[in-house]
Design a protein around this nucleic acid. Structure first.
Lengths: 138, 138
DNA sequence: CTGTGTGCAAAGGGTTTGCAAGTAC
DNA sequence: GTACTTGCAAACCCTTTGCACACAG
C-alpha cells in the first residue's frame, strides 16, 4: 500500500505527497522533476522541491545523475537498501540510447574492482546501451 | 608541449586558454570550476565557462559527476580516448573519503556486465574509498 | 494541541545569450 | 582579412529561504 511507504519512513501522509508518490509508482523507469511536474495538475514548485528533499533524505527515492547532467529520481523500493546509513546500491543505472529512459537494473553482484594502492569501498555504475524493450522491437 | 594540446584539437591558442590549461596540468586530480577560478588572478567568469565548453566539446577535458552533485573536470590526456565520437573511458572515477579529491584512475579492463535483455555498450564507474596517498599516511 | 507540511513572495547562485571590440592565424 | 575569442551586461533558468497559515497525528 502506497501510504505505508510514507508511514514506514516517518513521513506524514498528505494529499500532495500521495500524488507525487503515485507518479513514481506509475513509472517503471526513473523520472525527472519535469516528469513529475507534468504529472501534477496544479502544484507549487517549492513544495515539490521540498517533497523531493524529504523523500530523498528519508530514502523513499534516490537521485541518479547520468553523464551529460541528466538528473533523474527513482524509488528506492526494492532495488536499493537504505539501511546502514550509506545508500547501498545493488543495482546499476542504465540509460537507453533509443528511448533515452533511465532504469535501475538489479544485478546479482557488482564486480569487485582492484586498483593498486587504492581502497575501494563503494562503487556506482552507470551504463548506456539498449534497454530490453527497445532491443525486442528493433 | 601544452600549446600542442590545444592546436591538436583545433583550438586557437590564447593567453587565457593557456592559463586555464596550466591549472589542469598543475593538478594530478580532477578539479572544480571553483578550483580554476582560484587559480586565476583576474578573469571573466563567462569566458571561463566558454573555455570549459570548448575544451569539453573538443575533448581536451571531460566532466565528472560524482554522487552528491559533485562536479569536476579533468584532462582527457592519456586517460581517455575521444576518438570514435563516443567518449571512451578506460578509467574509473575515484573519490577519496579522506582528502575528498577525485582522481581518474586507469584500469586494465572494465568488468563486462551482463544483464538479461539489456545490451550494454558503455559504462562508467564511480568509486569511493581511500586514495593511494591517504592510505599510506593513515 | 503540537509539530510538520504547504503556499506565496522574494532572494540566491550558477550558467547562458547577445553584441561589440579584440586577436590568432 | 576572416573567423574565432573575449569581455561586459543582462537575462535565465533552477533551487533555496522566510514566514504565515493549514493540516496530520
Amino acid at each position: 500500500m502506497k501510504v505505508d511507504i510514507l508511514r514506514k519512513k516517518n513521513l506524514r501522509v498528505t494529499p500532495f505527497r500521495k500524488e507525487v508518490l503515485d507518479i513514481f509508482l506509475k513509472n517503471e523507469h526513473a523520472i525527472s522533476i519535469q516528469d513529475i511536474e507534468d504529472g501534477l495538475k496544479d502544484f507549487d514548485r517549492i513544495t515539490l522541491y521540498r517533497t523531493i528533499k524529504s523523500f530523498t533524505s528519508k530514502g523513499v527515492i534516490h537521485e541518479i545523475v547520468m553523464p551529460g547532467d541528466i538528473k533523474k529520481l527513482a524509488l528506492c523500493d526494492g532495488v536499493c537498501a537504505h539501511d546502514h546509513g550509506l545508500h547501498e546500491h545493488n543495482h546499476i543505472h542504465f540509460q537507453c540510447r533509443k528511448c533515452e529512459e533511465v532504469y535501475c537494473v538489479e544485478i546479482d553482484e557488482l564486480p569487485q574492482l582492484k586498483v593498486p594502492g587504492f581502497i575501494i569501498e563503494e562503487q556506482e555504475i552507470q551504463a548506456k546501451g539498449i534497454c530490453s524493450k527497445c532491443s525486442v522491437v528493433t
